[in-house]
Every structure is written in C-alpha cells, then in structure tokens.
Design a protein around this nucleic acid. Structure first.
Lengths: 251, 251
DNA sequence: TTGACAGGTGTACGTCGTACACCTACCGTC
DNA sequence: GACGGTAGGTGTACGACGTACACCTGTCAA
C-alpha cells in the first residue's frame, strides 16, 4: 500500500535517487485519471494524488498549474482516446462514428461525463473534435450557417452523452424500506405523478422493480441522435437558412 | 454591513429577543438564492450565508440537513417559479409554454443552470414539471412508450437550457493580447480549425469581434426545440413504437 | 568551477463543511 | 406554579482542502 518514498528532509534520499523516474505532466494526468477511475472523482484531491505518486502535494504544481488545469488535462486525456473514424464515410456515418466513439471513450471513465459538463475551456483536443464534426456536416452539403445551429442542437451529445433525466443514482446507504411502506410510496407516487408512473411501467414492460436499474441509455442516446440527424437532413434538403427562419423574422 | 447580532455568549441577547424573527427553511433558502444571485454560486458557503442572516453557521443546520440539501432546496425554489401555462393549449403549445417558462425561471438566476446539472435528486417540484410535460405529450396522442423516449431526447432542455458549446466565458482577468498577437492567433486558429472559423464567421455575419459575445442562445434553444418537436410529431403520426424500432431489433 | 534551472521538499495559511456539546425561551401538562 | 420536552439558537473543534512561499539538490552547459 505505502510507497517507498517516506523519507523526511529535503531532496530525494540517495538510496532512491537512482531508481526515481522524474514526474512529468503526462504521468500526473495518467495517475489522476486512474485515481478518478478507481476511487471516484470526488476523492481526487491534490494531496491524495500526490500520495499515490509517492510525492509531496506541492510537487504536482511543477507539472500542472492548479487543480482546474488538472481537470482540464484529464478531460483532454479522455477525449484524446476518441477514434477518428473511417475516412470514406458519408456525413451521417462520419458524425455517428465520431459521436459514438466519443461515447465509448466517455463511458470508460464514469467521472468524465460530469467533468466535461463542468469544464468550459476549449482546449485543442476539444476543438479538434468539434472541427471534425463540423467538417463532416460541411462535406455533407450543410451550409456553414446550418452547421452552426446543428452543432448547437446536438449540444453535449457531441461528447456522447445525454443528461440523466430519470435514473436517480439511488443512495446505497439509505435504509431499505419495508414492502408495506414501499407499496404505500408507490401508491402515493401514482396519485401525484400518474403519467410518469405510466411511462415507467411502459419502459420496464411492467417489471417496475427494474426502474431503479435505469433506462437503456444506449438506446435513448441513439434514438435521439437519429432523430436529430433526420431533422438536420430535412433542413438541409429544404435549403434552410437562418435568414429565412421565421424566428429570425426573415423572408 | 454588519448585523446587530454580535453578542458573544449563549442564546440571543435580551435586547434583541423581542425583534428577532426566528429563521426557517424558506428564509434560509431565499437568502441562499439571493446570495448566489448577487455574489455567484462559488461564493455561497454555509459560513457566508450564516453571516448574511446574522446567525452562526451551525444555526443553518437546524433548517437544512447539509449543503447538498441546501442546493437541492435552491433549485426547487427556482423551479417553483415556473408558470404552469394556459390550460386549453394543444400539446405542442403546452410543451413550449412549460419549457420556455422553465427557461425564464432559470435565466433569472445565472447559477441555476450549473446547479441543476449537478443535482440528481428528483424532488416533488422536479417531478411536477416532468409530470406536466409528460401529460402534455400523452394528451397530444403520444403513446407512453414514445413519450418516454421523447422526454429523454429533450434531456436538459426540459429545464430551458442547452449546454454552452461555443461561448467560452473568457477570463476577464487574462491580459488582453496586442493586436499583432491577436491576428497571429486567429491565423493559427484558422489553419487548424478552418470549419469552426467559417462557422463563427457565418454566425457573426463577418464581425468576428463579436464572437466573444457568444451565440444567440435564445435562438439556438428555440431552433432545437422546434426541430425536436417536429421530429416527435412525425414519429407519433407514423405510429412509432420501440418494439418496431430497428435499434431494438423489432419487426 | 560555476551557476542556472528543473524538480523535488516542508511549512503555513485561510477556507471549507460539519460533529458535538451546550444553552435558553417557550410550550403544554400535571 | 413547577416541570420537562423541544425548537432554535451558540461556541468550539476537527479534519479535510488548495496552494503561496521559501527552500534544497542533482544535473548539465558554459
């Protein structure tokens, strides 16, 4: 569990000197990603990360300017895993490949979704992904104008995830209610929120016990993606322009 | 600036006793919302909030179980502002009214967007909104099945916002680059990300200086909402079911 | 030989959330 | 009128956290 580097006093002890590999930004980021994967993003602290690397907390600041930059770097590392997609594909396949590739990368790291949402900086890696998507639309005959709005419409789905609407990650620490109370709750729920209940029943095909298991996120994601791409295609074929859009008061 | 309640020692001083209104959950939440509105969500701490209320930090814990619950309560307070919408409207108008109403509420509080994204708990207020939306779809002839997927597709847009894709809130503390450097950066940007540049030019109608100002979020939001509602309508009219969807391996 | 520098170290500060023990005014019950 | 419970306030203290700052040390070029 504990690393060898437990020396007190300045500098690395002579015994370790030979075998110590100097830290660098990539090793720091990799360790941070690994720690977040294993222990959750909420237990990723500079101190904990330093400990994991056998180093004093302040050593990290030689490679990463602050914790925000660390998070940015981690997100970059994840997004760097996105496969570029086959070159010959038509626009629709190209977009799907890119987006579903991003999804695979993000799903590999449970914390990535949340981290991406909370970041706002447009690093080169982020811009690369956006550029590739935008270029796919342009190559598919979309105007720059339409491409812009279409990217906005995709929103965070360009990163391969949609927000979790229904499945509250239920607290495992909460005491399990008895079956009687459970039934009473369900009844009360059905009275106040009949449509949501109806939807849940439909979604689980009657097996309401499975509600806690959440929806089929992959299906929901692809459903929405296809719906959007269909809509985009239709607008393109109609020759849509923002100047001609009634919301812009055009025509 | 400072409140009168500066006494040391236990209990409220006798002089104040008559005029002190006891705290309650609603007053705590209102103060928290006000503080977040005025000073930003990042400077909302239990200590600061207590100070604002002329009270010791621990006093808050008599009304709110912890900071997470405080945040939940604040989000609830904002969502409670959503107007229900006119009763006679057809499904499409009902959805639009509800969603654009949510948008107005969220836009009143700059922190709300981020707070909603980071919350996962489904409070009654949250469920009320979802129930109203789902009911509107059902009343419009959508199957429970389709309603479910359609709500997923709307995603966070049911709260009236879409993720900020393009407009990085640029750091006001950053030193402004000289015009020469600015031009060099733009050139480098255009080389690496030509399509994004092209889109930005189209979006700002050539006035690239306006890029920092961000996109017209309201337009983007309504554009996406209409695109989605059109798609939903089409699926409904086609009699779509998830069992018949090729992704589900049906039919 | 020297001296700059990259990369590590230790200490210290201010801030945070909150557990815990406490006190006190008020209320209904005897 | 005494009394006990409870709602709502208080003070202290603890263990995190991020990070500024001063420091040391081995390496390598001049």
């Amino acid at each position: 569990m504990y690393d060898v580097h437990l020396s007190t006093g300045y500098g690395a002890p002579v015994a370790d000197q030979a075998r110590r590999v100097p830290l660098n930004r990539d090793r720091v980021l990799a360790a941070a990603v690994g720690l977040a994967d294993a222990a959750g993003i909420e237990s990723l602290s500079m101190r904990r990360l330093a400990q994991e690397l056998g180093v004093v907390p302040m050593a990290l600041y030689k490679h990463v300017s602050d914790k925000d930059a660390l998070l940015d770097g981690m997100v970059d590392a994840v997004l760097g895993e996105i496969e570029p997609g086959a070159p010959g594909a038509d626009w629709r396949a190209a977009v799907q490949q890119r987006v579903l590739g991003a999804r695979r990368a993000v799903l590999r790291h449970p914390w990535a979704r949340r981290a991406i949402e909370s970041r706002t900086s447009r690093t080169p890696v982020v811009l690369d992904h956006m550029e590739a998507l935008a270029a796919a639309f342009r190559a598919g005959g979309f105007s720059a104008d339409l491409t812009h709005h279409v990217m906005h419409t995709l929103g965070n789905r360009i990163w391969g995830f949609s927000p979790e609407l229904f499945d509250a990650p239920h607290d495992p620490a909460a005491p399990a209610p008895g079956p009687a109370e459970q039934e009473a709750r369900a009844a009360e729920f059905g009275r106040r929120f009949p449509t949501i209940l109806e939807i849940a029943v439909a979604a689980t095909r009657g097996d309401l016990g499975a509600v806690g298991g959440g929806c089929d996120e992959q299906f929901e994601f692809e459903f929405a993606l296809d719906l959007l791409l269909d809509g985009f295609e239709r607008l393109r074929d109609q020759g849509w322009t923002s100047a001609g859009d009634p919301r812009r008061g055009g025509v």
